[in-house]
Design a protein around this nucleic acid. Structure first.
Lengths: 111, 111
DNA sequence: ATAATACTTAGCCTTATGGATAACCATCTT
DNA sequence: AAGATGGTTATCCATAAGGCTAAGTATTAT
């Protein structure tokens, strides 16, 4: 059960990295452009990109001296699936509980 | 833009804590029961519960000497929403790209 | 050939994280 | 009243995370 969810969630547990993902949904970009809006030294910023890349959330390749970065599909869907599953299980339980509550109420009305 | 997503994602970035959440979808439980399957000292385990609680993912109250823990609704849905949004944006972009590609292909066939 | 651009690498620092032990307090049980 | 149960508090420790500066390496531009 120790999937890539670890790296995935911890990759998104940082506002800088979430901002990068949000930016990348509008299309690929070179490192320098991604870096621009963040008030932080480039090497620090590169660490964030590194984390996103090892988590599989982005991919990048270098063309000349420029490194282009683009978003990656799979992982987001995977995490979404996990969350959805938990929510469903939990909501299902609530439903059964309220059904039970109704049942008990009926019983007490009729009996 | 610095919501509760930080705490939320980092709370789920650990297998122990995700396991606790999974367990809690089947219903509330006392700390000792939650702890049992995890090969880890109680105080260490309690830190995980603490993180889940400050992230708003669980809530707990003490009855006698027992502390009962249950899962909390909102945050999961919120994170799911964020992920869904990113995925939609990104898929939307792919769609536009492939539409563009088709268009170009048509052009080159007709012209 | 020089200089500017766009990263890279290396090393340092501080705080957060995930784990442990030891000792403590508050309830039940017997 | 003792003892067992179920947490809690206090410390401590090692490693990871997030930030920095300084210096280095390729490419491209002049």
């Amino acid at each position: 059960m120790d999937n890539h969810l670890d790296g995935f969630f911890s990759a998104l547990a940082d506002p800088t990295r979430r901002a990068v993902i949000e930016r990348l949904t509008t299309g690929p970009a070179p490192v320098s452009e991604l870096h621009a809006p963040h008030d932080m030294a480039l090497p620090s910023f590169m660490k964030h990109l590194g984390k996103l890349e090892t988590a599989g959330l982005i991919r990048s390749e270098k063309v000349g001296r420029v490194r282009m970065v683009h978003i990656e599909a799979g992982p987001i869907a995977e995490a979404e699936t996990w969350l959805k599953k938990q929510r469903r299980l939990w909501e299902g339980r609530l439903d059964r509980l309220s059904a039970l509550a109704e049942h008990i109420e009926e019983e007490s009305n009729n009996g």
